[in-house]
């Protein structure tokens, strides 16, 4: 028993230093050297250098002139973020979704995309499927007085199509582009 005590304590100490000290330090050094933007949280900065968010973390947008993000069960809180964890059979889920659908639905546009009615797993999902962004085009175009085609072009540009996952649009980046669009001279 005592003979095993020294290897137990010494190896625990050594492997703790290796796996809990050296290994994270090595990953940090290599990561910061090779991919500094990603390693520091993919931060978006404005011209003054102020951090305006991370391109990976959703922000809340309200008002007709913005594309709205995926709904969040934790109201976009980051410390910690949260999911609804409502079961498919929970009546609260159906009630919430039908209530939201009635508010969102628009004549002539058909049913509301499910991604705009359901909360994400992280509560911070920065993406929407392209169809859920396209659904918002008429509203944003009307609010900003910009032709729908112009926004559609912006949307097409912002759509990511990875080979191994569904196409998505980053709502935060799209809205950032939208803000830039408004400041440039109107081309009609």
């Amino acid at each position: 028993m005592l003979a095993s005590l020294r290897p137990a304590l010494c190896l625990l100490a050594l492997l703790t230093l290796l796996t809990g000290g050296l290994y994270p330090l090595l990953v940090t050094a290599l990561g910061q050297w090779a991919f500094p933007y990603q390693a520091n949280g993919s931060l978006l900065r404005d011209a003054q250098g102020q951090v305006r968010g991370s391109q990976l973390i959703a922000q809340p947008f309200s008002g007709a002139q913005w594309f709205h993000s995926r709904p969040s069960a934790g109201d976009y809180a980051t410390l910690p973020s949260a999911a609804s964890n409502l079961a498919a059979s929970n009546p609260q889920l159906a009630a919430r979704i039908k209530r939201e659908a009635a508010l969102e639905s628009n004549q002539g546009q058909g049913p509301v995309p499910l991604a705009l009615l359901t909360t994400s797993a992280s509560g911070l999902d920065p993406h929407l499927p392209p169809a859920a962004v396209a659904w918002q085009l008429p509203r944003v175009a009307a609010a900003r007085g910009v032709p729908v085609q112009r926004l559609q072009a912006l949307l097409d540009q912002a759509t990511l199509r990875p080979w191994v996952g569904p196409p998505v649009v980053n709502v935060l980046l799209l809205n950032q582009a939208l803000a830039g669009l408004a400041s440039t001279p109107h081309e009609g």
Partner: peptide, 11 residues
């Protein structure tokens, strides 16, 4: 397909 509690990028 239901999307509650799922992330758009994973589908």
């Amino acid at each position: 397909a239901p999307l509650e509690g799922k992330e758009a990028r994973f589908g």
